[in-house]
Design a protein around this nucleic acid. Sequence first.
DNA 1: AAACAGTATTGCGGTTTTGTGACATTTGCA
DNA 2: TGCAAATGTCACAAAACCGCAATACTGTTT
Lengths: 234, 234
Amino acid sequence: MAATILVVEDEPAIQELISYSLRQAKHTVFSTKNAEEAMKIINEALPDLVLLDWMLPGMSGADFARMLRRAARTKDIPIIMLTARADESDKVSGLESGADDYVTKPFSPRELLARIKAVLRRRAPEAADDVVEIGGLRLDSATHRVTANEIEVVLGPTEFRLLHYLMTHSERVHSRSQLLDQVWGDHVFVEDRTVDVHIRRLRKALENVDKDGLVQTVRGSGYRLSAGQAVSAG
Amino acid sequence: MAATILVVEDEPAIQELISYSLRQAKHTVFSTKNAEEAMKIINEALPDLVLLDWMLPGMSGADFARMLRRAARTKDIPIIMLTARADESDKVSGLESGADDYVTKPFSPRELLARIKAVLRRRAPEAADDVVEIGGLRLDSATHRVTANEIEVVLGPTEFRLLHYLMTHSERVHSRSQLLDQVWGDHVFVEDRTVDVHIRRLRKALENVDKDGLVQTVRGSGYRLSAGQAVSAG
DNA sequence: AAACAGTATTGCGGTTTTGTGACATTTGCA
DNA sequence: TGCAAATGTCACAAAACCGCAATACTGTTT
């Protein structure tokens, strides 16, 4: 959800407003007043999206958009054009130049954010309908369901993600820290012990379909999901 | 089968005839005399199809079609061109400009409707199905009716579209944003939470026929319509 | 066997996400 | 013009979740 956005807008006031609200929404913002500088920034690192003013000193926004569209490296970056209300033909040429959407000034920060969200979502590859199946347990991310023998296992969001990760990386041992990074997200400050709790919740839910044995503890290392059962001698 | 159609035609008589027969066929119609106005309408919300007169005052139909094809947001809208006579070169250029089909004047409303149906079907293979039935709930988009066990369920327009979408894309989880895009429209700006309210209204209506369990909440992800029950062991 | 270190369980307070009913507007029509 | 249906937002209640920490276990090491 949080993305890196390049804002190309010469009016300081609008520039300020946009940057502020984008940052407020957890996005990372780079901003410039003209196309030339924007180009430099893009050369450094590709943003996830470009907010481009239609009227710019020097190279116009439309021309800049077209340029981005022509270069292989930048042609897939979503572009949202900022146009002045008045003339409709601007919108037309704006979109023709390759923009994914446009927002007419004046606009509310809220609207801008909604548009950004929509464009980013549209660009994101349709979540592949991936279905994983291991040891008689089946997880379908499209329908967001986990079943075993036709019986559904009800899981909370975190347990679902955790199981998803374990299933797509089965047979391997994952330390608690690794799980926190992969399942909770990078740089999240949560106790290692919390993983235990979620593993516990996951196992409990799997007990209902007799599949709790799939989640195994590897003492001193972490956890592992494995179809091969852990046999305790004894 | 009911669709939203934008008619761009400058001759009042023909305009009238077309609008009348389209509405008769349950389509929603927007109409204008020229490309410029048409652009404004499209900026508001995308129609499912555009009926475009080849000859238009100002920007020509062909140019307008090309323009639509170039813009990312509109390039997938089906276009049917209305040409003055069976002039081969017109047809050719018409199709070249990006039209999906063409109809030569004079034409019968019947022929026009057939072409429209064909084009829409080609574009949306799955939406062509007029009747959907899931979990004992039956929705007929032709008669705009929803029934369960012979009993009719009364729904408002939005709830109807929402249910229709969910039924034609059942089992899958849809986020609120996705639902807004699909059910409300491409360029509308409303709160995510609004979806909740309509889901609520939909469920309430379905309660009358004991089918409200079909609409399920997937916490953290969105909603899903499913015939399968969530069986959670205690 | 006692001391340890690593795990399993549970209960709980605090949050976040949903469900709901009420309300202000807008829209279509009578 | 006035009414009724349809809609988008709110504010508050209800649920579902989370992460933590205290406590109970388990397997190892000395």
